[in-house]
């Protein structure tokens, strides 16, 4: 096998992922289209489609994370830092998952000041929060609070739900050095890995962003915190 050309597996994988995303894109748009007509005729179909939509967006989020991780490894993860209103990001988060939220009758409370703006990469932070939000949607018992505020010159975005909370093993993950994270431990590993990578890529005047996991909070479930300098 010595003379075989070296195949860079991650590059092959990345281009395959890209293809998959294109198909998924068509799939999601078709589901959207179908649910529009289904919502008028058949509530059961609408529910199935909402679920289908949810799973497809999860898949999409995972693929996005994979691609971002690949870029980060190849040092090709450019951040586009611009000023954004936090309320816009939260609204978009909800719009993205509107079908599922309505279908499961989840109440989402938003505590974000209209004027709160911050410098961040909207797409990457949007993806990061979406992954956390999707999990909250799944594990909560019909209630989620999203809050955003400034504290000590840093932006805090907090997602709380009233579910069971994070298992002990996950709470430890956040403090572990990146290299020791065991990605075989299940899908949550990838999501958190991504969240840590993206948050710490946000840097200002020598300080980096971070994430924190807790249990309890106002709703007694899991609490996810994103802190950006």
């Amino acid at each position: 096998m010595k003379n075989q050309p070296q195949i860079d597996f991650s590059t092959v994988l990345a281009s395959a992922v890209h293809d998959m995303k294109n198909s998924l894109c068509m799939l999601i748009q078709s589901i959207d289209h179908l649910s529009l007509s289904a919502s008028k005729h058949s509530p059961e179909d609408a529910e199935d489609l909402a679920h289908l939509h949810y799973e497809a967006s999860r898949l999409n989020t995972n693929l996005l994370q994979l691609l971002s991780l690949y870029r980060a490894e190849k040092h090709q993860l450019p951040l586009t830092i611009e000023e954004h209103y936090i309320v816009d990001i939260v609204e978009e988060l909800i719009a993205k998952n509107e079908v599922y939220i309505k279908n499961r009758e989840i109440k989402v409370e938003i505590n974000v000041d209209e004027d709160l703006a911050w410098y961040l990469d909207m797409d990457l932070i949007g993806n990061l929060l979406n992954d956390i939000f999707i999990n909250a949607l799944r594990y909560s018992n019909e209630k989620i609070i999203i809050s955003g505020y400034e504290e000590n010159g840093k932006l805090h975005i907090k997602l709380e739900d009233n579910g069971q909370g994070y298992p002990e093993s996950m709470l430890d993950l956040v403090d572990m050095p990146m290299q020791q994270l065991d990605l075989n431990a299940g899908r949550t590993g990838l999501g958190l890995f991504f969240a840590r990578l993206i948050s710490s890529a946000h840097e200002n005047k020598g300080e980096r962003g971070e994430i924190r996991l807790e249990n309890g909070g106002e709703l007694g479930g899991s609490v996810f915190k994103l802190i950006l300098p």
Binding site: C25, Q29, K96
Partner: peptide, 11 residues
């Protein structure tokens, strides 16, 4: 960024 939903486009 593709794919996007109609809700995303509208917001």
């Amino acid at each position: 960024t593709k794919p996007f939903t109609k809700q995303t486009l509208r917001t």
